[in-house]
Write a protein that binds this DNA or RNA. Structure first.
Lengths: 339, 339
DNA sequence: AACTATTAGGCAAACGTTTGACTGGAATTT
DNA sequence: AAATTCCAGTCAAACGTTTGCCTAATAGTT
């Protein structure tokens, strides 16, 4: 049975003073004689008094809670983001209220309302893949609750963002493939309506163009297709492929498996680059070259920005772009040797 | 700037009724004429009225928040636990307040107080590795806040638990090694003061005993030793080792790497079994045989039990033990063929 | 028409805290 | 001695809800 905890009023009664006096004594504000203060503090200590945050929130209109909406927690990327966020919120004395959206718009909407109803001081969210309607996020903005969006830009939403430069990350990866001698590079792409995957796709195209290679639609495969493995095999049967740039490490891993089955030499015959630097990249063999996203940093910066907005009452949205970096492992050739 | 949201009192004023009437109308309780009710509901809708959970909590002494304390969120095991918990709390309308302890007693203690101060309805916690003092958890119990502990049993703490049978899991793994022809089995063990790793150690010993094999202290290596790799090599140089049973998949992975370096045939010469079924087990090559812990289930059951305690006001602690299962992959021989 | 029963809604306290305005008395100044 | 300043602490409202108790008015019964 939940016990009733001792309140300021209880302490006040016992000492025949008013709650306001106790409050002032405990908070070190207002005019209070030293002995009275001591007396109150001692009694509070004796009873193990703990201020009721709920009541505090009522009057201050501040909860010290931050809402967090992420698609899921089973992939490493989001966990590192979470860890990064937590590192900041913990230090600043905020608690995290978390919601998973499963990338479903419906759950995402519900989560927004829940967090708003909980009167969180701010919200951090990574939008799922539901393309169009972002009314629920506008609602947060309308309510005046600070909002920082992670990872994906949503054009219509005038709020703060922390993103990575997907275009550059992809460009760099493809440039690397080209520099190491690849000319027929397949792109495994993600859904177009997600800004991240679309930008990686653009980066791929731009890198080809910059190096006077033709962009060929036939060399692009959808990573979420149910015929993905067939598509990969078909393309290998049809074209003299020498490189893969995949939108995700998971897709890249699938490709590596197919290549191993076909007894291709990696990276001598065919190079592969993934995206995200999920842990599996280090565990598979050959170890996967990939574009590392600074997930922990993303979370950290997003939390920093959100708290800045909250605490300094900043109205103008800020966007911060963090840099990706290419991690060269065993599925790419050393470009300086093989040019 | 955070906007003031419309309150029940605002609605009441506009309609010249009292807040109580509005409250009753909105909650469907009490005596209210249909037209008045309609009128109030419509106005609430018009203004997008949303009840203030904080205020509700004040009067009901219930927050619909559950506190969660986990050591960290960068390992898969805890994320699956989190996902399992979330699946239940979401469905039942509770929010999760999360704290990481980094397995540090100090942070763990602070988290307990924070959650208690936040007046959560219950707490789920996986104790870190700080052996001794568990006063902070007793404090939760003393305050009468329902507590379910995950993963590790803490003898002195009379509360509810959801655990897995580490002893049996280890026993089964070692029995499997023996059945598939191993006689000189090394155990990579975890810290003694954690019940889970100690029980796995006991399971290892017991399995040897049951099969009339001598337990030899020389065949036990501490997985967290800084000389771990040296220890593995030494033991391989000194004894005719044919099997490894590791306290964790990470240690098992290290062992596999050493064995590959030494050109041992896995599993023909030496078998390896890990623990936990982390994703890496499937990604490394050869794929790692391991003892699978039902992390998602653990979280799910723990949340179910906690909510049951909260909602039905149950006083007597319950302990639930979930079953592990041996996953036979490529680092173990098929025992039926090789006996 | 007189009485009872029912209904719609108001009143006020409560949850625990903070905070601006106020007051009685002591201490200080003139 | 009178006037002023200061101090320690009280008062009461406020935050947004809920809820037991009460009352006025209406409806229903003889």
């Amino acid at each position: 049975m939940k016990k009733k905890k001792v309140s300021i009023t209880d302490l006040a009664k016992e000492l025949n003073v008013t709650p306001s006096t106790v409050s002032r004594a405990l908070n070190g504000l207002g005019n209070i004689s030293t002995k009275r203060k001591e007396q109150i503090v001692n009694l509070a200590q004796k009873y193990g008094y703990r201020p009721n945050h709920i009541a505090k929130s009522m009057v201050s209109n501040k909860t010290f809670n931050i809402g967090l909406i992420l698609p899921e927690f089973t992939h490493n990327y989001f966990n590192n983001i979470l860890a990064g966020i937590e590192s900041i919120t913990y230090q600043k004395g905020y608690q995290l209220l978390i919601c998973t959206s499963d990338a479903l718009k419906e759950k995402e909407e519900k989560s927004c309302m829940t967090l708003l109803d909980a009167r969180v001081d701010g919200i951090l969210a990574a939008a799922g893949n539901s393309s169009d309607n972002l009314d629920h996020f506008s609602k947060i903005i309308d309510y005046g609750t600070p909002l920082v969006l992670l990872d994906r830009i949503c054009e219509d939403l005038n709020t703060s963002y922390v993103i990575t430069n997907d275009f550059d990350g992809a460009f760099e990866a493809v440039q690397y493939l080209i520099d190491s001698g690849c000319h027929n590079i397949v792109h495994i792409k993600g859904p177009d309506y997600i800004s991240t995957s679309f930008n990686r796709f653009l980066g791929y195209q731009q890198a080809l163009k910059k190096n006077s290679l033709n962009y060929r639609e036939e060399l692009v495969i959808a990573g979420d297709s149910e015929f993905f493995l067939d598509d990969v095999n078909n393309i290998l049967n049809t074209f003299p492929i020498d490189g893969f740039f995949a939108f995700s490490d998971y897709n890249a891993y699938e490709v590596v498996k197919v290549l191993k089955q076909r007894d291709c030499k990696i990276p001598e015959d065919i190079s592969v680059i993934g995206y995200a630097d999920e842990p599996l990249a280090q565990y598979i063999s050959p170890q996967l070259s990939t574009v590392k996203q600074p997930a922990y940093e993303i979370g950290k910066r997003a939390a920093e920005i959100l708290l800045k907005i909250i605490e300094e009452n900043i109205e103008v949205p800020m966007t911060e772009q963090l840099k990706t970096s290419l991690v060269h492992r065993e599925t790419t050739k050393n470009k300086f040797i093989s040019i």
